[in-house]
């Protein structure tokens, strides 16, 4: 009986939360003139599956998908590497100015990203990085997503020092300890960072909009804007293409979510 109630609650909330998703699916299957109609339909009477083929064939969809994959994998790799290294230093090494640096690190969490817009543009322009993927990728390698540094730090701190002391005595370097002992232990955090960062890069619109000029280089989030015009959107195509573009990240989340529960631990144990 209690299980039944629990399921009922879960399903009810799922309907509430999933309503917009359902709408997106519904819209993607309708002809333009029935979109937004006041007739409430659970499922369109004549689902127009051709919207999907049209949506994909009117744009170089596969090219966009490939670009998104390239950008996301590289940036996520860089983020995991740089933030875990920084997290290691903040968690397991003692050095002067550490608390100051940690204060700065947490302070950067509060800065609105619009501050960076012009300075970063000018810097990357000086470096000749416009119309390349570097402005999208390099900040990841420089541990710019400090929340992940924080996650790694918390996790590394929870590992007892005795665990690594023996290795140090045996002459192992910090790199070995980080690479061979701590990083393998922190698989949940690594996966958490991968998922969260991948979702971010997958749907990031502003950065590619600012830095990319050639359509051959567009990622999905930017490319799908080609369905928006001043005096009318191709709503059904836009929804069809958006839904297709979201499949990879949704799958990623579904497959890894049991790790997320262990990776997102903020307290020290």
């Amino acid at each position: 009986m209690r299980t039944l109630l629990q399921y009922l609650g879960l399903i009810l909330v799922a309907i509430l939360v999933g309503m917009p998703v359902w709408w997106a699916i519904n819209t993607s299957l309708q002809p333009l003139e029935s979109v937004y109609s006041s007739h409430f339909q659970i499922w369109p009477d004549h689902p127009q599956w051709s919207n999907y083929t049209d949506a994909v064939s009117r744009l170089p969809f596969l090219r966009f998908l490939f670009n998104s994959l390239i950008i996301t994998t590289t940036a996520v790799f860089g983020t995991v590497l740089s933030t875990s290294m920084a997290g290691y230093v903040f968690a397991r090494l003692r050095w002067t100015g550490r608390s100051w640096c940690f204060g700065i690190l947490m302070g950067t969490l509060l800065i609105p990203s619009q501050v960076y817009l012009i300075p970063h543009f000018l810097m990357f322009e000086r470096l000749g990085w416009l119309n390349t993927y570097k402005p999208l990728i390099v900040p990841g390698f420089l541990a710019m997503d400090v929340f992940y540094v924080f996650l790694f730090r918390q996790f590394f701190r929870s590992v007892p020092l005795a665990y690594t002391e023996a290795a140090l005595v045996d002459g192992a370097t910090h790199w070995t300890i980080y690479r061979r002992i701590l990083l393998p232990m922190s698989k949940p955090v690594v996966i958490t960072v991968i998922v969260m960062n991948a979702v971010f890069h997958w749907q990031d619109l502003m950065t590619p909009l600012i830095y990319l000029n050639d359509i051959e280089k567009f990622p999905l989030a930017l490319g799908l804007r080609m369905y928006q015009t001043m005096d009318g959107d191709w709503v059904n195509h836009l929804m069809a293409a958006s839904l297709l573009s979201l499949i990879p990240v949704t799958l990623l989340f579904f497959l890894t979510q049991r790790y997320l529960m262990r990776g997102l631990v903020l307290t020290e144990k």
């Binding site: 909009l209 000029n213 567009f218 928006q228």
Partner: peptide, 8 residues
């Protein structure tokens, strides 16, 4: 070289 900004 066609430099294209999608959208409005």
């Amino acid at each position: 070289r066609q430099e294209y900004t999608p959208g409005f």
